[in-house]
Design a protein around this nucleic acid. Structure first.
Length: 272
DNA sequence: ATGGTGGGCGCCCCA
Protein backbone atom coordinates (compact mmCIF):
# COMPACT_ATOMS: atom_id res chain seq x y z
CA UNK A 1 0.00 0.00 0.00
CA UNK A 2 2.75 2.42 -0.93
CA UNK A 3 2.59 5.89 -2.46
CA UNK A 4 5.06 6.96 -5.14
CA UNK A 5 5.60 10.68 -5.64
CA UNK A 6 7.45 12.26 -8.55
CA UNK A 7 8.74 15.80 -9.04
CA UNK A 8 9.59 17.08 -12.53
CA UNK A 9 10.39 20.45 -14.06
CA UNK A 10 8.56 19.82 -17.33
CA UNK A 11 9.47 23.08 -19.16
CA UNK A 12 6.03 23.63 -20.76
CA UNK A 13 3.31 21.17 -19.80
CA UNK A 14 1.41 21.64 -23.07
CA UNK A 15 4.44 20.77 -25.17
CA UNK A 16 5.41 17.77 -23.03
CA UNK A 17 2.14 16.23 -21.82
CA UNK A 18 3.24 13.18 -23.81
CA UNK A 19 6.38 12.84 -21.71
CA UNK A 20 4.27 12.92 -18.55
CA UNK A 21 2.30 10.03 -20.06
CA UNK A 22 5.55 8.16 -20.61
CA UNK A 23 6.57 8.72 -16.98
CA UNK A 24 3.15 7.41 -15.93
CA UNK A 25 3.61 4.29 -18.08
CA UNK A 26 7.15 3.56 -16.93
CA UNK A 27 6.95 4.32 -13.19
CA UNK A 28 3.25 4.80 -12.47
CA UNK A 29 3.68 7.42 -9.73
CA UNK A 30 0.56 8.09 -7.66
CA UNK A 31 1.41 11.79 -7.43
CA UNK A 32 3.24 13.93 -10.01
CA UNK A 33 4.41 17.43 -9.06
CA UNK A 34 5.28 19.60 -12.06
CA UNK A 35 7.16 22.89 -12.30
CA UNK A 36 7.54 25.39 -15.15
CA UNK A 37 4.19 24.46 -16.62
CA UNK A 38 4.15 27.89 -18.39
CA UNK A 39 0.43 27.55 -18.80
CA UNK A 40 -2.61 29.52 -17.57
CA UNK A 41 -5.05 27.35 -15.61
CA UNK A 42 -7.70 27.58 -18.33
CA UNK A 43 -5.32 26.01 -20.88
CA UNK A 44 -3.97 23.25 -18.62
CA UNK A 45 -4.19 19.86 -20.41
CA UNK A 46 -6.45 18.32 -17.76
CA UNK A 47 -8.10 15.81 -20.06
CA UNK A 48 -4.85 14.13 -21.10
CA UNK A 49 -3.91 13.56 -17.44
CA UNK A 50 -7.39 12.35 -16.50
CA UNK A 51 -6.94 9.66 -19.16
CA UNK A 52 -3.81 8.53 -17.36
CA UNK A 53 -5.75 8.13 -14.13
CA UNK A 54 -4.78 11.47 -12.56
CA UNK A 55 -8.32 12.62 -11.87
CA UNK A 56 -7.35 14.99 -9.07
CA UNK A 57 -5.36 18.12 -9.85
CA UNK A 58 -4.18 21.23 -8.06
CA UNK A 59 -2.84 23.80 -10.51
CA UNK A 60 -1.45 27.31 -10.31
CA UNK A 61 -0.24 28.67 -13.61
CA UNK A 62 0.28 31.92 -15.45
CA UNK A 63 0.96 32.89 -19.03
CA UNK A 64 4.47 32.23 -20.26
CA UNK A 65 6.44 31.84 -17.04
CA UNK A 66 6.72 29.63 -13.95
CA UNK A 67 3.65 27.61 -12.98
CA UNK A 68 3.25 24.55 -10.73
CA UNK A 69 0.79 21.66 -10.62
CA UNK A 70 0.06 18.52 -8.60
CA UNK A 71 -1.52 15.56 -10.42
CA UNK A 72 -2.88 12.79 -8.23
CA UNK A 73 -4.53 9.39 -8.64
CA UNK A 74 -5.63 9.63 -5.02
CA UNK A 75 -8.19 12.19 -3.81
CA UNK A 76 -7.02 15.72 -3.07
CA UNK A 77 -8.98 16.90 -0.04
CA UNK A 78 -7.52 20.41 0.32
CA UNK A 79 -5.38 22.84 -1.68
CA UNK A 80 -3.48 26.00 -0.79
CA UNK A 81 -1.24 28.49 -2.56
CA UNK A 82 1.30 30.84 -1.04
CA UNK A 83 2.72 33.88 -2.75
CA UNK A 84 6.38 34.74 -2.14
CA UNK A 85 8.18 38.08 -2.33
CA UNK A 86 5.00 39.90 -3.35
CA UNK A 87 5.77 39.08 -6.98
CA UNK A 88 2.53 37.38 -8.01
CA UNK A 89 4.56 34.48 -9.45
CA UNK A 90 3.08 30.97 -9.49
CA UNK A 91 5.86 29.23 -7.60
CA UNK A 92 4.05 27.22 -4.91
CA UNK A 93 1.05 24.97 -4.47
CA UNK A 94 0.18 22.53 -1.71
CA UNK A 95 -2.31 19.68 -1.55
CA UNK A 96 -3.54 17.30 1.14
CA UNK A 97 -3.84 13.86 -0.45
CA UNK A 98 -5.55 10.75 0.92
CA UNK A 99 -3.21 7.86 1.60
CA UNK A 100 -4.10 4.15 1.19
CA UNK A 101 -4.29 3.79 4.97
CA UNK A 102 -6.93 6.50 5.24
CA UNK A 103 -4.67 9.31 6.45
CA UNK A 104 -3.59 12.34 4.51
CA UNK A 105 -0.25 13.43 3.18
CA UNK A 106 0.53 17.12 2.75
CA UNK A 107 2.54 17.86 -0.40
CA UNK A 108 4.27 21.21 -1.03
CA UNK A 109 5.44 21.81 -4.60
CA UNK A 110 7.95 24.64 -5.18
CA UNK A 111 9.62 26.36 -8.08
CA UNK A 112 12.40 28.47 -6.54
CA UNK A 113 13.64 31.40 -8.71
CA UNK A 114 16.65 30.47 -10.86
CA UNK A 115 18.50 33.64 -9.92
CA UNK A 116 19.99 34.88 -13.19
CA UNK A 117 23.66 34.72 -14.11
CA UNK A 118 25.52 37.05 -11.76
CA UNK A 119 25.77 35.77 -8.16
CA UNK A 120 25.71 39.21 -6.57
CA UNK A 121 22.44 40.47 -5.04
CA UNK A 122 23.72 44.06 -5.19
CA UNK A 123 23.81 44.14 -8.97
CA UNK A 124 21.47 41.28 -9.94
CA UNK A 125 17.84 41.64 -8.79
CA UNK A 126 17.07 38.05 -9.84
CA UNK A 127 19.72 36.74 -7.45
CA UNK A 128 18.41 39.03 -4.70
CA UNK A 129 14.93 37.60 -5.37
CA UNK A 130 16.23 34.05 -5.02
CA UNK A 131 17.87 34.80 -1.67
CA UNK A 132 14.74 36.63 -0.45
CA UNK A 133 12.64 33.62 -1.44
CA UNK A 134 14.79 31.39 0.79
CA UNK A 135 14.53 33.89 3.67
CA UNK A 136 10.75 33.98 3.32
CA UNK A 137 10.60 30.19 3.38
CA UNK A 138 12.56 30.13 6.63
CA UNK A 139 10.30 32.80 8.16
CA UNK A 140 7.19 30.87 7.12
CA UNK A 141 8.50 27.59 8.56
CA UNK A 142 9.43 29.37 11.79
CA UNK A 143 6.20 31.34 12.22
CA UNK A 144 3.61 28.83 11.01
CA UNK A 145 5.01 25.29 11.29
CA UNK A 146 1.50 23.84 11.70
CA UNK A 147 0.37 25.47 8.48
CA UNK A 148 3.42 24.07 6.69
CA UNK A 149 3.39 20.68 8.34
CA UNK A 150 0.87 18.01 9.07
CA UNK A 151 0.43 15.39 11.75
CA UNK A 152 0.53 12.51 9.29
CA UNK A 153 3.54 13.64 7.33
CA UNK A 154 4.61 16.33 4.93
CA UNK A 155 6.55 16.17 1.68
CA UNK A 156 8.33 19.14 0.14
CA UNK A 157 9.35 18.73 -3.48
CA UNK A 158 10.33 20.84 -6.40
CA UNK A 159 12.88 22.55 -8.56
CA UNK A 160 14.75 24.35 -5.79
CA UNK A 161 17.36 25.57 -8.31
CA UNK A 162 20.19 24.88 -5.85
CA UNK A 163 22.63 21.95 -5.87
CA UNK A 164 23.49 21.74 -2.17
CA UNK A 165 26.37 19.24 -1.89
CA UNK A 166 29.77 19.17 -3.62
CA UNK A 167 28.68 15.82 -5.13
CA UNK A 168 25.51 17.43 -6.51
CA UNK A 169 27.47 19.13 -9.31
CA UNK A 170 29.90 17.86 -11.92
CA UNK A 171 32.68 20.06 -10.54
CA UNK A 172 32.42 21.62 -7.10
CA UNK A 173 35.48 23.78 -7.67
CA UNK A 174 34.36 25.13 -11.05
CA UNK A 175 30.81 25.88 -9.89
CA UNK A 176 31.54 27.62 -6.59
CA UNK A 177 30.92 30.99 -8.23
CA UNK A 178 28.13 29.81 -10.52
CA UNK A 179 24.51 30.55 -9.58
CA UNK A 180 22.93 27.35 -8.15
CA UNK A 181 26.04 26.26 -6.20
CA UNK A 182 27.44 29.41 -4.53
CA UNK A 183 28.01 29.23 -0.75
CA UNK A 184 25.32 31.84 -0.04
CA UNK A 185 22.78 29.63 -1.83
CA UNK A 186 23.89 26.25 -0.46
CA UNK A 187 24.10 27.71 3.07
CA UNK A 188 20.68 29.31 2.57
CA UNK A 189 19.10 26.07 1.41
CA UNK A 190 20.66 24.24 4.33
CA UNK A 191 19.04 26.75 6.71
CA UNK A 192 15.70 26.16 4.99
CA UNK A 193 16.14 22.40 5.40
CA UNK A 194 17.28 22.59 9.01
CA UNK A 195 14.48 24.91 10.18
CA UNK A 196 11.97 22.03 10.42
CA UNK A 197 14.46 19.18 10.13
CA UNK A 198 13.47 18.15 6.59
CA UNK A 199 15.15 14.95 5.37
CA UNK A 200 16.76 15.01 1.91
CA UNK A 201 15.52 11.49 1.23
CA UNK A 202 17.27 11.00 -2.12
CA UNK A 203 20.63 11.69 -0.46
CA UNK A 204 19.72 9.50 2.54
CA UNK A 205 19.33 6.60 0.09
CA UNK A 206 22.25 7.56 -2.17
CA UNK A 207 24.84 9.30 -0.01
CA UNK A 208 28.05 10.97 -1.17
CA UNK A 209 30.56 10.38 -2.64
CA UNK A 210 28.20 9.13 -5.37
CA UNK A 211 27.39 12.00 -7.73
CA UNK A 212 23.72 12.68 -8.41
CA UNK A 213 22.29 15.06 -11.02
CA UNK A 214 18.74 15.93 -12.08
CA UNK A 215 19.47 18.66 -14.65
CA UNK A 216 21.71 18.90 -17.71
CA UNK A 217 21.95 22.05 -19.83
CA UNK A 218 20.41 22.11 -23.31
CA UNK A 219 23.56 23.87 -24.46
CA UNK A 220 25.89 20.90 -24.21
CA UNK A 221 26.80 19.26 -27.51
CA UNK A 222 26.28 15.84 -25.90
CA UNK A 223 24.70 16.11 -22.44
CA UNK A 224 25.18 12.41 -21.61
CA UNK A 225 28.81 12.21 -22.71
CA UNK A 226 29.94 15.41 -21.00
CA UNK A 227 27.60 14.70 -18.04
CA UNK A 228 27.98 18.21 -16.64
CA UNK A 229 24.88 17.96 -14.50
CA UNK A 230 23.56 19.44 -11.29
CA UNK A 231 21.06 18.13 -8.69
CA UNK A 232 18.54 20.99 -8.62
CA UNK A 233 15.37 18.94 -7.99
CA UNK A 234 14.59 17.60 -4.56
CA UNK A 235 12.27 15.52 -2.41
CA UNK A 236 12.31 16.34 1.30
CA UNK A 237 10.33 14.53 3.99
CA UNK A 238 9.23 15.80 7.38
CA UNK A 239 11.14 14.00 10.16
CA UNK A 240 8.10 11.93 11.17
CA UNK A 241 7.66 10.71 7.60
CA UNK A 242 11.30 9.87 6.88
CA UNK A 243 11.07 6.30 8.25
CA UNK A 244 8.29 5.63 5.68
CA UNK A 245 10.67 6.10 2.73
CA UNK A 246 11.30 2.90 0.78
CA UNK A 247 13.06 3.80 -2.47
CA UNK A 248 14.24 6.82 -4.44
CA UNK A 249 15.28 7.33 -8.04
CA UNK A 250 16.34 10.06 -10.45
CA UNK A 251 15.06 8.95 -13.86
CA UNK A 252 18.12 10.05 -15.84
CA UNK A 253 16.94 8.31 -19.00
CA UNK A 254 14.07 10.81 -19.31
CA UNK A 255 16.66 13.48 -20.18
CA UNK A 256 17.27 11.46 -23.35
CA UNK A 257 13.63 11.11 -24.40
CA UNK A 258 12.49 12.84 -27.59
CA UNK A 259 12.22 16.65 -27.19
CA UNK A 260 13.12 16.35 -23.50
CA UNK A 261 12.89 18.71 -20.60
CA UNK A 262 16.34 19.73 -19.38
CA UNK A 263 15.34 18.23 -15.99
CA UNK A 264 14.83 14.56 -15.12
CA UNK A 265 12.04 13.37 -12.80
CA UNK A 266 12.92 12.59 -9.18
CA UNK A 267 10.87 9.85 -7.47
CA UNK A 268 10.35 8.50 -3.97
CA UNK A 269 8.24 5.57 -2.80
CA UNK A 270 6.75 5.85 0.67
CA UNK A 271 4.74 3.59 2.97
CA UNK A 272 2.95 6.34 4.89
C1' DA B 1 36.79 33.75 -23.01
C1' DT B 2 32.75 32.82 -25.15
C1' DG B 3 28.64 30.86 -26.71
C1' DG B 4 26.27 27.19 -26.97
C1' DT B 5 19.95 25.44 -26.90
C1' DG B 6 15.23 25.54 -25.85
C1' DG B 7 10.24 27.51 -24.63
C1' DG B 8 6.81 31.22 -24.83
C1' DC B 9 5.31 35.14 -26.97
C1' DG B 10 5.03 38.45 -30.38
C1' DC B 11 9.73 41.92 -32.70
C1' DC B 12 12.73 39.74 -26.65
C1' DC B 13 11.78 37.78 -22.26
C1' DC B 14 13.39 33.65 -19.33
C1' DA B 15 15.89 29.25 -18.18
Amino acid sequence: MSVTIASWNINSVRLRAGLVARLAEERSPDIICLQETKCPDGSFPRASFEKLGYRHMAISGQKGYHGVAILSRRPIVATSIREFCGMGDCRHIAADIETPSGGTLRVHNFYVPAGGDEPDPEINPKFAHKLSFLDELIDWFRQAPDEVGHANGTVLVGDLNIAPLPEDVWSHRQLLNVVSHTPVETDGLERVRAELGWVDVVRRHTPPPEKLFSWWSYRARDWAASDRGRRLDHIWLSPDLAPAARQTEILREARGWERPSDHAPVLARLDP
